Amino acid sequence: MHNASLISNDFMDLVYAGRCDAESMALSNITGKIVLCNAPAEAKSTPSTVALWEAFKHTSGNGAKGLIFAQHTTNLLEGLAGIEHIMPCVLVDFEIAQRIISYGNSAGSPVVKFSPTITVVGDGVLSPRVASFSSRGPSPSFPGILKPDIAAPGVAILAAQGGSYAFKSGTSMAVPHVSAVTALLKSVHPDWTPAMIKSAIVTTASVTDRFGMPIQADAVPRKLADPFDFGGGHMNPDRAVDPGLVYDLDAKEYNKFFNCTIGLVDGCGSYQLNLNLPSIAVPDLKNQVTVWRTVTNVGPMDATYQAVVEAPAGVVVSVEPSVISFTADGSRSTTFRMTFTAKQRVQGGYTFGSLTWFDQSSHSVRIPIAVRTVIQDFIADTS
């Protein structure tokens, strides 16, 4: 419930008004009543924020005293800011809405009472999870580069606003978290390049929550998050300070990439695949593709790492060499190749996996992988 002070403790009549559009309002007497708006069939085509405000406009304009709005689980609480001083509003998922509808059908005169909001903290909160409004991959312009890179806290963050504070959400809230971690890593490792810092953040990120369960992503409906939702995962500053291995990249390589973007260099597709990023995206696997990467040891001088692959569905993946070793008097960097082979000839969608380098101690260096099998270029699976 939002803003419980606006209503009394008395039960009020409940009306189910379907989509709560103008037509539904014309068929319902909602004056002085609480209205349930539930339109699951339209949820995938109409954003929740738009549907909520349309429902609010029609219900408040027809004299309703409160609104129960059914939606897929998304981050909508801040969207209630303009409603809270006009009428109380409760957000529920479609399953709870159906239970309310069943109650209404069985009761002769259904009634409802709003109670104050309950705040849940600690282990009872499903977090981290990816916000519904978060930017998703793949990149249509450069599908050979996996985006996003990383996920960071960006929902309901207490932020400075004017001479006070307010809860804000979005990229503007997530970026300061990443920037702060970047600054801390630079203070600990002043000789690291920007690419090394980025790699440390991406390769040590978490893809599970505090219970060891996969991170979820608010969507339509909620789903398990994948690299197009969170890149390497949810950043973990404590692990990022000691990543073991990093994927370094000379700044000049970015200049070459820029030249690709403006058409000054040929063969950009292959160049994107082999840019030494802490991720791999293969957007057009027809038969077989080989991708090269180089890792640099920033951990103990004497170390051996074993490759562990989680292959994307429908793809066979090999790593050569699968074991890499570093010594005090040897090179700090080594190059390996990954070969991706399609198991079936289809015009398919993306599937996801990962490559993780493990040493004998505490280092686990993980990069996300996204692969899409295709039959031929410029043929889309649109059916």
Rank of each mutant, 00 (worst) to 15 (best):
A4P: 00
A4Y: 02
A4I: 15
N9H: 11
C20K: 03
D21V: 03
D21Y: 02
M25Y: 01
P40D: 02
F56W: 15
L67Q: 09
A70D: 06
A70E: 05
G79D: 13
G79W: 09
A81K: 15
E84N: 12
A97P: 00
A97K: 02
I101E: 13
G104H: 08
A107H: 09
G108R: 15
G124R: 10
V125C: 08
A151D: 04
P153D: 09
A160F: 11
A160S: 11
G162M: 05
S169V: 06
A174D: 00
S179P: 01
V181M: 14
L184Q: 12
K186I: 14
S187A: 15
D191F: 02
A195W: 01
M196S: 08
K198V: 11
A200D: 06
V202C: 04
T203A: 00
F211M: 09
V220C: 11
R222I: 13
L224M: 06
L224R: 07
D226S: 05
F230Q: 14
G232Y: 07
N236Y: 08
A240S: 13
D248N: 14
D248M: 02
K252S: 15
Y254N: 06
F258W: 12
N259W: 05
T261W: 05
T261R: 03
G263D: 09
D266R: 15
C268L: 03
S270M: 13
Y271T: 10
L275S: 04
L275A: 06
A281P: 01
V282M: 08
P283M: 02
K286M: 14
N297H: 05
N297M: 00
P300I: 14
P300F: 13
P300Y: 11
T304G: 04
Y305E: 01
S318A: 12
E320W: 06
D329S: 14
T335Q: 06
M338C: 03
M338A: 05
Q344P: 03
R345P: 01
G353V: 04
T356S: 02
S361H: 15
S361D: 14
S362P: 00
H363N: 11
Q376C: 07
D377Y: 13
